[in-house]
Amino acid sequence: MDDIDPNLEATLRDALRRRRELTVSGFTDRAMVAIQRDTRRRKVIRWVSISAPLAGCAALLALFLGNLSDGLNPNEADIARLISAHDKVIVSTPHLEDADALVAFAFSESTVAASHLDTTDSLEELMDLVLSES
């Protein structure tokens, strides 16, 4: 099929071979960090996707079947506070170590908050903390 010009082919090969390999120092370390970050992110997404629907039910039960005013336990009160302060999205999950406790994540334009952890770290860090606790 090809009418190969040997001179052209040899020169092309020499030119392209100059860039056959490009070893970059530190690349492997960067790749390992990127892979670890991806693994952590996927773990968090998986965890949230499994727990969120159940947790939503648990949070609703805790908030609406219980006494909504004076009878709230500290966690429920925290969640109620988060609901009022962050109107974007709320994901609440039962704390695995303590059936009565709830961990709630609330999102607004610029902040992420958690009732159980009382921190404004990134969601990923919060989820890491929760995962390490559970």
Binding site: E21, L22, T23, F27, I35, D38
Partner: peptide, 28 residues
């Protein structure tokens, strides 16, 4: 494998920085 991947991607894209980003994603 990263040396050959970077060689190939740099030849394709013309910019080593972009090639490195894509190569990282390849290993992810």
């Amino acid at each position: 494998h990263h040396g050959r991947l970077l060689g190939f991607l740099t030849s394709q894209l013309g910019a080593q920085a972009v090639a490195e980003e894509l190569a990282l994603e390849v290993f992810v």
